[in-house]
């Protein structure tokens, strides 16, 4: 198990290197002189040739691309991500300051997805093939097909503008969390429902369920007390996958709802070509995503003692 965890952490380094190199290469090859952009950030709109040259020397921007990347990587490994072009603050501090709003959103969205997906999926499984099941599966398919930015606008229109029940902008407080979390959570609930349903269908066909029926237990007890727990295992395993959706969704949902989270910081930094912050966000996303998936695998092995990760059985 320990060897497995160590190997997965090694994989995290690989992911971070590949993703940050792609970002790095695109950033540096894109039109526009990075030295000039930094100089503008530092000295104001009107910069002289000399100032640009000075920045180029200071920041080591005259070196070949691979050398620059290695230098950046060495600093990043020590936790120094450089300074934001926009605010002049250290990029790491900037990013960490935005983290709470995104974590809040991610947790709330996962909660919405579980609260919606687990019961619906379970009911579907017990009503397999009947109208309720077909309707819920259709709903789940619709759920993955709806663009979350459209859903966000529809929710704002109905619940903020027409009914006036909930605020549509900013962060802080439960009321401002509801609409973004529902937007993100319903899309994820679609996957939860599917996985939960197939898990429960499988569990319901097992002998111990038949034994429970033979003992005369009510269908309700069998479903919610005997089958539910075992059916949850596949749902737990896709939580890691779901987390990727949260990160992707956060970028869009935070933009629509004006939440000051990492996703919005990333989009704004991309617009401003704030290299240090973009790279920092990308590293954070990579780290969080890989670690969450590792955590899910570990929890999975703990939930189901038949699974153990031996040598050679890697996998992303």
């Amino acid at each position: 198990m320990l060897a497995y965890v160590v190997r997965r952490l090694g994989f995290l380094v690989l992911v971070a290197v590949v993703v940050s190199f792609i970002t790095f290469a695109f950033m540096r090859l894109a039109p526009g002189d990075p030295a000039e952009l930094i100089a503008i950030g530092r000295f104001g709109e009107h910069v002289t040739e000399a100032q640009v040259e000075q920045v180029r020397q200071q920041e080591g921007l005259e070196a070949p691309l691979p050398v620059q990347y290695v230098r950046w990587g060495a600093r990043a490994a020590r936790g120094d991500l450089g300074r934001s072009l926009v605010s002049g603050e250290p990029a790491a501090a900037e990013i960490l300051g935005r983290l709470p709003a995104t974590v809040e959103l991610a947790v709330a969205a996962l909660l919405v997805s579980l609260l919606l997906g687990v019961p619906v999926g379970t009911v579907c499984a017990s009503h397999r093939g009947r109208p309720l099941d077909v309707a819920a599966r259709g709903g789940a398919l619709l759920g993955v097909s709806v663009p979350n930015f459209w859903l966000a606008l529809l929710l704002i229109l109905v619940f903020s503008l027409w009914l006036g029940w909930l605020p549509s902008y900013g962060s802080g407080g439960l009321a401002r969390l509801v609409l973004p979390a529902v937007t993100l959570g319903t899309g994820m609930a679609a996957l939860t429902t599917r996985v939960m349903r197939s898990g429960a269908v499988e569990v319901l066909s097992r002998p111990y369920i038949r034994a429970a029926r033979a003992r005369g237990l009510s269908e309700r007890t069998i479903l919610w007390k005997h089958a539910l727990k075992n059916s949850l295992i596949p749902t737990v395993t896709v939580l890691g996958l779901q987390f990727g959706r949260v990160l992707e969704g956060a970028v869009i949902v935070e933009a629509v709802f004006g939440r000051p989270g990492i996703g919005r910081l990333l989009v704004n930094s991309v617009y401003a070509r704030d290299f240090a912050v973009v790279q920092g966000c990308v590293l954070l996303f990579a780290g969080v995503y890989v670690l969450v998936n590792l955590l899910v695998d570990v929890v999975y092995a703990w939930l189901d003692p038949r699974i153990h990760y031996g040598a050679g059985g890697a996998g992303a």
Partner: peptide, 24 residues
């Protein structure tokens, strides 16, 4: 496959947003 696995272990839309934004 190393490159493929590394990229699959990252939320794709996020990377696409970065690339598209940087390219203009």
């Amino acid at each position: 496959m190393g490159a493929v696995d590394a990229m699959l272990a990252f939320p794709g839309l996020v990377l696409a947003i970065v690339i598209a934004g940087v390219l203009g």
